[in-house]
Simulated assay, not measured.
Amino acid sequence: MAPDAHTAARVHREIKQLIMAGKFQPGMPLVVHTLAERFGTSISPVRDALNRLVGERLVDMQGGGGFALPTISRRSAFHLYSWHADIVRLIVKVMIRFEEIGAPPVALVSKSADGAAIADAAAEFFALLAGCSPNGEHLDAIIQAGERLAILRLHEGGIGRQGEELATLWNVTRSGNRNATRVAMWQYHRRRLLRADEISLAATRAVSI
């Protein structure tokens, strides 16, 4: 890998981690020169990294070649949760090898489990779920949707007992009962669809660094 390509890959990874961790304010401009200084590189790898993030729909392209984080609204949050639910519905319909999902992390039901830990566990669970589908496109789709949902998942605290909820969903799924899994998945997503306004508002108040 050429030096610039290697640097672009590193910058892409680090910016993506910051976005998904909610470290940037939704809608904020991403200034190429500022990011280049921050990551100790030239502007070319930063621009390459941002263009890649545009393709992943984690960054928006602005007029004049600028970049910014997508804004978050109730409508966009509702549509994203709904899209995730649609993908999951397709997966549950065709998935096999339920037992390969394994047990949920014990920490999920711990009082010390914070929003970030639960969000990470949710991403892991749905990736495992998609891995049980014979259609490899499902895994790519669920990972991309999950990455775009990452900041919203950090602000689902109003739902309450998310760790226990996810652990229960995890165990229902690995039981192999397809109908019970379908119902549990819909209930999981319905709670978030009903709170899309609250979750999106909390996410827009995320503190930038």
Score class of each variant (00 low, 15 high):
Pro134Tyr: 15
Lys93His: 14
Glu100His: 07
Leu149Phe: 05
His79Gly: 05
Ala119Ser: 15
Ser110Cys: 12
Leu128Arg: 12
Ile101Asn: 12
Val106Met: 04
Gln162Ile: 14
Glu100Ile: 10
Asp86Glu: 15
Gly115Asp: 05
Ala127Lys: 03
Leu154Val: 13
Gly102Met: 08
Ala103Phe: 01
Tyr81Gly: 09
Ile142Thr: 05
Ala127Cys: 02
Met95Asp: 04
Ala116Arg: 05
Pro105Cys: 00
Ser112Cys: 02
Ser112Lys: 02
Leu128Pro: 02
His79Lys: 07
Gly146Lys: 01
Phe98Ile: 05
Gly157His: 12
Ser110Trp: 08
Phe78Tyr: 10
Ala117Lys: 09
Arg153His: 15
Leu90Tyr: 10
Ala123Pro: 05
Ser133Trp: 13
Trp83Lys: 11
Gly146Glu: 02
Ile91Pro: 01
Leu108Asp: 00
Ala113Gly: 11
Glu137Gly: 07
Ile142Ser: 04
Asp140Ser: 09
Ser133Pro: 13
Gly157Tyr: 11
Ala77Gln: 03
Leu139Gly: 03
His155Gly: 11
Val92Gln: 03
Cys132His: 11
Phe126Leu: 01
Ile143Glu: 08
Glu164Ala: 10
Leu149Ser: 08
Ile143Asn: 09
Phe125Cys: 05
Ile143Ser: 08
Leu139Asp: 03
Leu90Lys: 14
Ala150Thr: 10
Val109Asp: 11
Ala141Pro: 13
Gly163Phe: 07
Asn135Gln: 14
Ser112Leu: 02
Ala141Tyr: 03
Ile96Asp: 14
Gly160Met: 06
Glu124Cys: 08
Ile142Trp: 00
Asp86Pro: 09
Met95His: 02
Val92Lys: 00
Ser82Thr: 15
Leu108Pro: 00
Ala116Phe: 03
Ala113Pro: 08
Leu152Val: 07
Arg153Met: 14
Arg153Ile: 13
Glu165Asp: 14
Phe98Gly: 06
Gly157Phe: 10
Ile87Asp: 12
Leu80Gly: 09
Asp140Gly: 08
Leu128Ala: 06
Ala85Thr: 07
Pro105Phe: 00
Leu128Cys: 08
His84Trp: 05
Glu165Asn: 14
Arg153Gln: 15
Pro134Asp: 15
Ala127Arg: 04
Ala122Asn: 07
Leu154Cys: 14
Arg161Tyr: 04
Ala123Cys: 08
